[in-house]
Design a protein around this nucleic acid. Structure first.
Length: 418
RNA sequence: GGAGAGGUUCCCGAGUGGCCAAAGGGAGCAGACUGUAAAUCUGCCGGCUCAGCCUUCGGAGGUUCAAAUCCUCCCCUCUCCA
């Protein structure tokens, strides 16, 4: 590794961010731009509340990818310390406080996942857990050294707190800003980290960190926030009737992941191509110009590229093939890599009532839901509509040794014996 | 600590003794229309061995033939006062 001030030859990553729509706010456009002319260390915080990221975290992850490609050094901070306190921003219910073991376990999964996007070798990227420095803090020292730099008046004026003052705000939550500010300062001291990025809801916390560092060290460090991503219908991304879309292929198969992207709204495709793929902007603009049903081509590119980034080329190819077969003119179950459900031969010999198989295979959440689905004409076996909810699915109904179940127009499961 | 308001099915939110598995909206699912899109229209939207049965309205008891609704205690949230 070269020195910290190694010159970077590629395009300024801030320009890339702006061109691709990553930027909502920057502390100082001119200063950040010149900062990024040299090799810079930047950080983003992530919650270790699950063992996988979901697409809601994809935007920050992609920003780290661009950072690294531009020669900078990203730090992914796992919020283990903050998770130990419980997350206040989900105001409906207090999250169960997580044990350190669980957090560490999650963190190792998350690192593996992140490693698909950015390289950690030779410290080209770093992953740290803020529990390492937060849990050792001593209250009196913290108040005296850190707390004195914070004006309560100013904190209350922050947008993130102002809204919460209506509904109520507890002391832990009020302290989040201090803890996150401390993180930023700590990373500055330890890694010379000079830029923090995050969702726009983090703006206040990011500023607090930059402020703290300025007061304590006399150094100007910076923040950048991403736009809050909603689909064009105003819904937050990444939720389907089956729950979140995960980046872990165990939780969301590459096929489902592909389907998630190909089913995006027309209006979102251009934006998503620039945010969630690494295609050159010329290509993005070309795809963006497509009209009418040609937009499907852009969606296919989006789905393929996004799947490739997350799961690799092989999986992306398979997902694409499966999708083409299922939605192409020749819908067949053969050699298609859709989610598979295994059952035993005896059951099929006896015949399984459709609604039970639909529930067992995970296509429906309950048998009641399966009954309704089929009653409404949304249940199919090998492309044939199932007429009665308890129609038996038998051994002799197979096609190529499998039974292709379909719920509605898009959700498939292949049943096989085994 | 005191006074008041409130906790309802995924979310918001009606419901003050039977007509309540609980209005309405949102989200979600399906059908029609399409382009594996959106919008629109229609249906569904607690569970089950489904014309019936079972479990829900912060928790635990109680009154009643009958409770989300009334009573008691407890837990939690918010507002004002200290």
């Amino acid at each position: 590794m070269k020195g910290a001030f190694q010159k970077i030859k590629v395009e300024n990553v801030l320009d890339i961010f702006e061109a691709r729509g990553f930027v909502e706010q920057v502390t100082d456009r001119v200063l950040v731009s010149s900062l990024l002319k040299n090799r810079t260390t930047c950080y983003i915080g992530f919650d270790p509340t699950a063992k996988s990221f979901h697409v809601g975290s994809l935007l920050p992850i992609m920003s780290l990818v661009h950072m690294q490609r531009a020669g900078h050094r990203p730090i992914a901070v796992i919020g283990g310390g903050t998770a130990l306190v419980g997350d206040p921003s989900g105001k409906t219910e207090m999250r169960p406080i997580m044990t350190r073991e669980k957090i560490n376990e999650n963190a190792s999964f998350l690192k593996k996942q992140l490693a698909r996007f950015i390289e950690f070798e030779d410290e080209k990227a770093i992953m740290v857990n803020n529990a390492d420095w937060l849990t050792g803090l001593r209250y009196i020292d913290f108040l005296r050294d850190i707390g004195r730099h914070f004006s309560v008046n100013r904190m209350l004026a922050a947008e993130s707190y102002r809204a919460r003052l209506e509904t109520g705000l507890n002391f832990i939550e009020f302290n989040y800003m201090l803890l996150q500010a401390y993180d930023f300062w700590h990373l500055f001291k330890t890694y010379d980290c000079r830029l923090q990025m995050g969702g726009n809801d983090q703006w206040g916390n990011i500023l607090a960190g930059a402020d703290l560092t300025r007061r304590m060290e006399g150094e100007i460090i910076h923040g950048l926030t991403f736009p809050l991503l909603t689909t064009s219908s105003g819904i937050k991304m990444g939720k389907t009737h089956k729950g979140a879309i995960w980046l872990d292929s165990e939780l969301t198969s590459p096929y489902e992941y592909y389907q998630y992207w190909i089913n995006q709204n027309d209006e979102d495709v251009g934006r998503f191509l620039s945010l969630f793929t690494l295609l050159p902007m010329d290509e993005v603009r070309r795809l963006r110009r497509l009209k009418g049903s040609d937009i499907r081509k852009a969606k296919a590119v989006l789905a393929y590229e996004a799947t490739k980034l997350c799961h690799g080329q092989t999986e992306a190819d398979q997902a694409q093939n499966a999708s083409r077969q299922l939605f192409g003119p020749d819908k067949s179950a053969s050699s298609v890599s859709v989610p598979v459900y295994r059952t035993n031969q005896q059951r099929l010999e006896a015949g399984i009532p459709s609604y039970i198989l639909f529930e067992d295979s995970g296509l429906c959440k309950s048998r009641g839901e399966a009954r309704r689905l089929i009653a409404q004409g949304g249940g199919y076996l090998n492309g044939q509509k199932i007429k009665v909810f308890d129609q038996l699915i038998k051994l002799e109904d197979s096609e190529n040794d499998s039974w292709l179940l379909r719920a509605g127009k898009k959700r498939y499961v292949k049943v096989i014996v085994g």
